[in-house]
Design a protein around this nucleic acid. Structure first.
Lengths: 206, 206, 206, 206
DNA sequence: AATGAATGAGGTTTCATTCAT
DNA sequence: CATGAATGAAACCTCATTCAT
């Protein structure tokens, strides 16, 4: 012990922890990316937004791509959290819980920022294999979780049909993000009503 | 004044019309954008791909943004052509025709390039108001066409419900483009079967 | 024919040929490198020295390394030219010609710039495998030429000894470049006299 | 005197003396410079190699240049030690001792790292007057020592000739460092044999 | 009209140096 | 004294756009 008198942590620890600093950079990047896209957001922009110097960012991320990957990963983690929540719902409340998610999903996906980021990520994934790998790995997990939900709603159902139905449900939710761009001012109430009806049909196979 | 007085054409007249030239540039850009995205495609790339000099491109488009806008517009025009086709289908064949579109749609949307471009466009639209305007204007038209189709399948149905249902159908087709990225290797046959069932339900309200 | 009246070459050809432009860049780089070394010479410095913009340099060289390699290559080409000259000297004048080279070599190697560049190249070669390859490939040729000269002076001599002697002679001439740095103000006259004596011994084996 | 009043040593006293610390830094720098050259070795690299923080290095050296200068000086000191050794050799063993040095010199100069560093230093000296001054001051001393050796081998010889011969011998040894780069895979045995013969001639004037 | 060489601002990244802790 | 996070200038390189030919 260099100084046993010192009660504060031996390593003087920065004002902010390494993790906080990383998050600060990710938050700033998020704002920039929403404003200008991955390629439009320059490191200088990000640094300014995070109120840091350009150089310091490189102490926390190897390069710009690493920041992007971190954003993608954290964006996907959010969705996984949602699934975890459903996983703990009792069987008899599951269908209702899922149907009630519709309103939440609509608000979420039609939020202007949320979908913009997701589309940015997807466009990037369409070309950047590393991003594609992250996105697809996350989807594998989501499908697994989704399948177990579907299984509980349709006990004994053929797995092939289960998967196909899961895929269709995913299309619907993913499609919302595109509709949020192409038709931002829908009649959300009418849509919610109809969606609930349709979803009920989709969740119960046959 | 180009020189309307000049009756004899001393200049051997452009081998290609202005419109052909524009299209040639757009085609080249499309190939570049699919390969590297809007920002990854440089004017030099485009010029090389179009077998022109960079300078000449600026005689046909004010700047790179203008080319992008033109591409977006032409991409959307393609979809309008599809609707026009359906518009001419007799009532008694309409549902079948639409259901048969599913296979075509799957092949189309799950094609690697197609969705990449669309997502590129949508991500751009999420930020660039001019692109957003183009995309949304196209969607207004598509919805109009879609509504008339839906109306023929569900005579006398409330317009609000019609629109909501149209929205949901759009979500499904749009969602395919995202699924093409996140889950490119689906069991397309099982999916097509299930989709046909689901679509039948979606097309017929109530 | 775009303009049959135009007697000048059909391609309007830049004011300077591509080759001239390349040389202009190499010359500017040479001045910068002598002043500040390979790493000290920035692309901006080179551009300023060549009275060009930074960007144009990249139309002629892929990157800074390529410029360096070109400099290295041209530096080595110079030496090869010297050998070619000796190759055409008749047998009975060869020894005298070589001995007379000593004065030229001293002036050349002790010139302030010449050795600086060579050492820069060698230091780079000591670490950069691509540069090392260029330098060593050139040396293979030089040795071949040197061996044929040595062979003419020592007919029937064992090749192994021939090569060793050639190596020693190379050491002497290469060593001059280092001496030019560590002891720039030698008594060049006394040195030339002694060198002539020594060389005579070196050229004639045994 | 850090604190002569303080009889009890509350601060555990630096484990290493200031000089040891300096040497530690120089050693680390040496390893880094051999690996990547003066410009390639970053302060962070050096700190990591020396297992210190960057900050502490600045307590021992004003800046990076000062470290380099210290390295250059220490590199030259090594050679001086060699001369001192010879200085103590009795006259009747001197020539043999010197000739036996050849094998050592070959191993030393053809070592990959050694010459790389020396060339790095020389290239730097060719541009940086401060480094040039250090290198040249060291050479003055080496020449003095060399002259006294030559004098013992050639008693009563004219100083001008002595110096010239010394210069030529220096060229040979310095040249080895360049040959080590341009022709690293020589037939070292044949070379050693021939060198011994040649050296014998060089050491004895006339 | 067409060319493609030239421009130079702006992109990402590195690194010597400082200084609060 | 030691630390290592922070700074920000400067490095290399790219590219949309212009313009002399």
């Amino acid at each position: 012990m260099k100084s046993p008198l010192n009660t504060t942590p031996p390593l003087p620890r920065a004002r902010q922890s390494r993790e906080e600093r990383r998050q600060q950079i990710l938050d700033a990047t998020l704002r920039c990316v929403r404003r200008s896209g991955f390629h439009g957001a320059s490191m200088a922009d990000i640094a300014a937004e995070a109120k840091m110097s350009v150089g310091v960012i490189y102490r926390y991320f190897a390069n710009k791509e690493a920041i992007i990957e971190a954003i993608v990963a954290s964006d996907l983690a959010e969705m996984r959290a949602k699934f975890a929540e459903w996983d703990e719902t009792p069987d008899d409340q599951l269908l209702d819980t899922l149907l009630n998610t519709i309103d939440f999903a609509l608000d979420h996906k039609y939020g202007p920022d949320k979908s913009a980021l997701a589309l940015e990520v997807l466009a990037e994934a369409a070309r950047n294999p590393r991003v594609a790998a992250i996105v697809q790995a996350a989807d594998v997990q989501e499908r697994e979780l989704g399948r177990s939900l579907c299984d509980r709603l349709n006990p004994g159902c053929d797995r092939r049909r289960l998967d196909a139905r899961g895929e269709i449900i995913s299309m619907l939710f993913d499609g919302m993000m595109i509709r949020a761009i192409t038709h931002p001012d829908i009649d959300r109430e009418a849509l919610a009503n109809d969606l609930r009806e349709v979803m009920q049909v989709l969740f119960i196979i046959k």
